[in-house]
């Protein structure tokens, strides 16, 4: 059984607000000095889901982690390898840059087709930087596979995958035959802490790199030139707040003053 995990390296969401800067001229995020990019947390959870299935299936199963991104994304790939994935693939090409969810799905699909024998793909429910949550679904369209998104539980048996999905008002369980794409949510649980022997084994593994031509992609179909989404303006919204303390000698008087104030402002 061959499982693929799609992993994205993102700017650290824990970047202190004061260090988060945007270049409004180019509509892009300025990398914060001294703060390294990290593996999107949801993708770590997707890796955990894939690894649990791999472990339940025995030795002839393998997990390949794929990341599209800059050379620095090797760190994210190594992290999933350290968790126990078997192989790593980096999709790196100038032509891939500046794309949107659609072109990303297109490149990932080409890579998965290139690998050939993939049974299931696991993605995070969304990348923790742009939070769009589209690549998984678009990927299943590109591959023409079934999909089940926002999973809190995944089980596999006899060629069927059963996915417990998080809905806004509860859960539902769906099942489908493989191949399929599953996106995994944080309700699934924490990703494992890598064991040192695996960290050291991961450090020794080589990451395969593919570009557009390796995957048979036309550079004009991917990246900025293939992108359907255009960012008009990227900015940090200004927020403002005023605090007013309600005067009054007793809690009752304060409450009355509050009601008056809210009514005056037409809030109640």
């Amino acid at each position: 059984m061959h499982l693929v995990v799609c992993a994205k390296q993102i700017p650290d969401p824990d970047t202190p607000p004061s260090a988060f800067k945007i270049d409004e001229a180019t509509n892009s995020v300025v990398p914060a000095p001294g703060i390294s990019p990290i593996l999107s947390q949801f993708d770590g959870i997707a890796a955990e889901a894939a690894l649990r299935i791999k472990e339940s299936q025995g030795d002839d199963s393998k997990v390949t982690v794929i990341s599209m991104g800059a050379d620095s994304a090797r760190a994210a790939i190594k992290q999933v390898l350290a968790m126990g994935a078997d192989e790593g693939v980096l999709l790196n090409d100038d032509a891939f840059e500046g794309g949107d969810s659609y072109t990303t799905a297109k490149v990932l699909a080409a890579a998965i087709n290139h690998l050939g024998d993939v049974d299931a793909v696991f993605c995070g429910r969304q990348a923790a930087d742009w939070d769009m949550g589209q690549v998984g679904l678009l990927l299943s369209e590109e591959l023409n596979w079934a999909s089940a998104i926002i999973a809190k539980g995944v089980e596999y048996g006899d060629g069927n995958i059963s996915v417990q999905r998080v809905l806004t008002d509860g859960f539902e369980t769906v099942s489908t035959q493989l191949p399929a794409v599953v996106t995994v949510s944080n309700e699934f649980g924490e990703p494992r802490y890598p064991k040192l022997p695996q960290i050291m084994a991961a450090a020794k593994k080589t990451v395969t790199q593919f570009g557009a031509s390796d995957l048979g992609l036309d550079p004009s179909d991917v990246g900025a030139s293939g992108s359907r989404l255009k960012v008009e303006r990227l900015y940090i919204p200004e927020t403002d707040s005023n605090v007013e303390f309600m005067e009054g000698d007793t809690p009752q008087e304060q409450a009355a003053a509050l009601v008056q104030k809210l009514q005056a402002d037409k809030l109640i």
């Binding site: 202190p16 004061s18 390294s36 924490e190 802490y193 890598p194 040192l196 022997p197």
Partner: peptide, 29 residues
């Protein structure tokens, strides 16, 4: 060897690995 540790301790270690400090979620620089 076993990667068996309390979740918060794991988070602190991961934070050290990723961010060079154990204080996950700090808003300070």
């Amino acid at each position: 060897n076993e990667a068996r540790l309390p979740a918060n301790a794991q988070a602190a270690l991961e934070n050290i690995e990723m961010r060079g400090h154990p204080w996950r979620g700090t808003a300070l620089e």
